[in-house]
């Protein structure tokens, strides 16, 4: 591979992973925008989504399916429908059971609670891997990484080129871009979306207008969780391995992306996700893989300390 080919390759990898990070970051940023909670469990929700996806594959009998057959396409679409419902519902439920009661207390109480939820999710992920299904290796090594079958072909669309651009890369963009457009439309144009922004900007005024604030916050968790669910499917299909501790890392990457873009801002989260995805890819290539995490954390700390409103412009123009 020539230098420019390597660069191009890392660019593709970085953008694809960046889009996935962006989807998770959107869930962080929406929840933060509306109740100023760093939803620490969001990364682990994403992880559970991956496990739900693999379970579904087992139930559908798709674990040996060949990429590109009609079965895998239907399976992929089913996954993209069901896993987001699972994640969104779970996120909604956690808000209902845990965070809703802490709305009036100090800001750190819901954060501590979210850390607790993150641990619970992680533990569920560990136990989930022990389910005696074929896709989980009959549950014999619960903590071990699980292989996620190739639902989308890995064949290079660029033919003989050394640079690989596969169906998986296409899938990432085909799923995420329309979804982001849909989300933008929802938040900008629909009544529910406007109510979300209203609650984010002034909760008391929203209550006085007759907006049922708790329901709107619940919807935000639902949508944010749903996006994490889509990210789960896309990630698992793209990277083909999942394990129960992956939520922490993914969560940190996504949170860093959200902070980078100005937490509370939707376009900021997407931009931040791309930056983090690219930074990881280039650091892996041109520095050293083992320093990549340090790089992400350094970015996170430096932005929080020196530009807490994010790198791109003033604080959260379009909150929620």
């Amino acid at each position: 591979m020539s230098g420019s080919e390597i660069f191009l390759q890392q660019l593709i990898i970085g953008l694809s992973n960046g889009m996935i990070i962006a989807l998770i970051a959107l869930g962080y940023t929406m929840v933060y925008g509306i109740i100023e909670l760093i939803n620490f469990a969001h990364g682990d929700l994403f992880m559970l989504g991956c496990f739900a996806g693999l379970t579904l594959i087992g139930l559908l009998g798709l674990d040996q399916a060949v990429a590109g057959t009609s079965g895998t396409w239907i399976g992929l679409i089913l996954l993209l429908l069901i896993v987001p419902i699972f994640c969104g519902g779970l996120n909604w439920l956690v808000d209902r059971l845990a965070y809703r009661h802490l709305r009036e207390s100090t800001k750190l109480a819901p954060l501590v609670s979210a850390i607790g939820v993150s641990f619970i999710f992680m533990n569920i992920g560990l136990l989930w891997g022990g389910i005696p299904m074929k896709v989980f290796g009959f549950g014999r090594a619960a903590a071990a990484p699980k292989a996620f079958p190739e639902l989308v072909s890995n064949a290079n669309l660029l033919g003989q080129s050394a640079v690989e651009f596969t169906g998986k890369d296409v899938m990432v963009f085909v799923v995420t871009l329309p979804l982001m457009a849909l989300l933008t439309w929802f938040v900008r144009r629909t009544r529910a979306g406007k109510a979300m922004r209203a609650v984010a900007q002034d909760r008391l005024a929203a209550q006085l207008m007759g907006i049922p604030v708790d329901r709107v916050i619940g919807q935000t968790f639902l949508i944010g969780g749903g996006l994490a669910g889509v990210a789960s499917v896309v990630f698992a299909v793209y990277n083909n391995t999942i394990y129960f501790q992956m939520g922490y890392r993914a969560g940190i990457d996504a949170f860093t992306a959200a902070v980078l873009g100005g937490i509370g801002s939707l376009p900021g989260a997407v931009l931040g996700g791309l930056v983090i995805g690219l930074a990881r890819a280039f650091c892996d290539q041109y520095l050293e893989t083992r320093w990549t995490n340090v790089l992400v954390f350094a970015v996170l700390i430096l932005v929080l300390v020196f530009r807490p409103s994010g790198l791109f412009g003033s604080r959260a123009k379009e909150k929620v």
């Binding site: 845990a98 009661h101 802490l102 207390s105 109480a109 819901p110 501590v112 609670s113 850390i115 607790g116 939820v117 993150s118 641990f119 619970i120 999710f121 992680m122 533990n123 569920i124 560990l126 136990l127 891997g129 022990g130 549950g139 014999r140 619960a142 903590a143």
Partner: peptide
Amino acid sequence: SNVFTAPGNWKYMLYGLALVLMMR
């Protein structure tokens, strides 16, 4: 070989529940 019955595999669940329930 059974993950569910090993008490150690419920550790984080209990820590997590401790945090959530205490806050609540």
